[in-house]
């Protein structure tokens, strides 16, 4: 029993914990920095926790960003080849960029109204955001027509393919955001809450996070297509 090697650093400073947990857990056994906080609000694990949804959205966005990072590097590699034939940016895409930036602003206004408890105002801003989102998609489709009118088709060459492909994949992701907006509208109509609940705020914040990310993503793709030829 006496000589059992458990580690090379035997004489580690007492009282320090890598995981941050206290040396002797308090009555609730909870670490000081909230580690293992499954029972923070209640003894039961299945309580509503806003962090669950926020973490998940960040994780989703990490995956989305990875995919677009891969596609962007593919674009950069193919554009730097000698056979690249640059395509002029359709004017519609400038318009759509403005529209989606505005939509992010209106979403922020909506969130602010919600936090002040002004639900009707919140709903109106959300509707506006939704309309701006649909307008963005319409502008993108018009941009496609503009490209096609100039004789630039999907399969013409890699650069033109990327014009359609980036807008298309981004559009699909934005439709996800639009569904999120519909969800926000429906849940408010269904609940008719007098006081805005934590769940409603969390839902709005998580959808807003996604929406802003899609906004930023489009900005990145737009600049990439505009600048890198």
């Amino acid at each position: 029993m006496a000589t059992r090697v458990t580690d090379t650093k035997v004489g580690r400073k007492e009282g320090t914990r890598i995981g941050g947990g206290p040396r002797f857990p308090g009555p609730n056994g909870k670490g000081p920095s909230g580690n293992g906080k499954g029972g923070e609000h209640d003894e039961r694990g299945r309580r509503f926790s806003p962090a669950t949804y926020r973490i998940t959205m960040w994780v989703v966005l990490a995956a989305v960003v990875m995919m677009f990072a891969a596609l962007s590097s593919a674009y950069i590699i193919l554009s730097s080849g000698g056979q690249s034939r640059p395509v002029a940016m359709p004017r519609m895409f400038f318009l759509s960029t403005g529209v989606i930036l505005l939509s992010s602003l209106s979403f922020e206004k909506a969130k602010r109204s919600l936090k002040q408890g002004a639900q009707i105002k919140y709903l109106r801003w959300i509707w506006l955001t939704l309309l701006l989102g649909l307008a963005f998609l319409a502008a993108q489709l018009t941009g496609w027509r503009e490209l096609a009118a100039e004789g630039v088709y999907f399969a013409s060459h890699p650069h033109s393919s990327f014009f359609y492909f980036f807008t298309g994949v981004h559009g699909v992701h934005l439709i996800g955001g639009i569904l999120g907006l519909f969800y926000l509208i429906l849940r408010l109509k269904r609940r008719k809450e007098l006081l805005v609940s934590e769940r409603t705020i969390t839902a709005a914040e998580v959808v807003a996070l996604y929406w802003h990310a899609m906004d930023g993503l489009w900005l990145w793709l737009f600049l990439l297509l505009l600048v890198w030829k």
């Binding site: 857990p25 499954g38 029972g39 694990g45 669950t52």
Partner: peptide
């Protein structure tokens, strides 16, 4: 997605990362 969120946010009391 599920694994990451579960592990980060659903550990029981006292289950610090290093435990």
């Amino acid at each position: 997605l599920n694994f990451i969120t579960t592990l980060l946010n659903m550990r029981t009391r006292g289950m610090s990362l290093m435990r």
